[in-house]
């Protein structure tokens, strides 16, 4: 794909479009395999060996092992697929969301209780102070 995308100027956001989907195909399909309990078991037993069964880049595998969700997203991962990884770890969407914002989970949960992250200064890159 060429040219600017209208959503490239939204801060802290990667839009999972056709280009990202191509880049993340194997990473996301690995995630999909974790919908089966026997695969979750095999992954838990030896993560590296399980990842090596998939045609993912080394960078993608390292991001999975480190549970670096922002990195996985930059490498083509989609949050609904990546959810299978934190589900396998017994974690929630709120745990993963807090992790991606760099906030402690309790601070993140409190922010949500107070009405969530404001859209003010969060519409365009460059206008936000703290992401």
């Amino acid at each position: 794909m060429t040219g600017d995308k209208p959503y490239d100027n939204i801060p802290g956001t990667v839009i999972f479009d056709a280009e990202m989907s191509r880049r993340g195909y194997h990473l996301n399909q690995f995630c999909m395999s974790l919908l089966k309990e026997q695969n979750r078991e095999r992954f838990r037993l030896n993560e590296r060996a399980y990842l090596d069964e998939w045609a993912m880049s080394e960078e993608q595998k390292q991001a999975v092992l480190a549970r670096d969700y922002n990195k996985m997203i930059a490498l083509g991962g989609n949050i609904y697929f990546l959810a299978k990884i934190f589900a396998t770890d017994g974690k929630s969407f709120q745990y993963a969301a807090a992790l991606m914002t760099g906030m402690a989970q309790e601070d993140y949960a409190n922010m949500m209780l107070k009405g969530g992250r404001s859209v003010e200064n969060n519409r365009y890159k460059g206008e936000q102070s703290d992401g």
């Binding site: 801060p11 956001t13 922002n70 991606m100 914002t101 969060n122």
Partner: peptide
């Protein structure tokens, strides 16, 4: 309704929207 589950902007809520 409004929500974002990914990246540093996760947790976005826009009651006005």
């Amino acid at each position: 309704m409004s929500h974002q589950l990914q990246g540093p902007r996760a947790g976005l809520i826009n009651r006005e929207f």
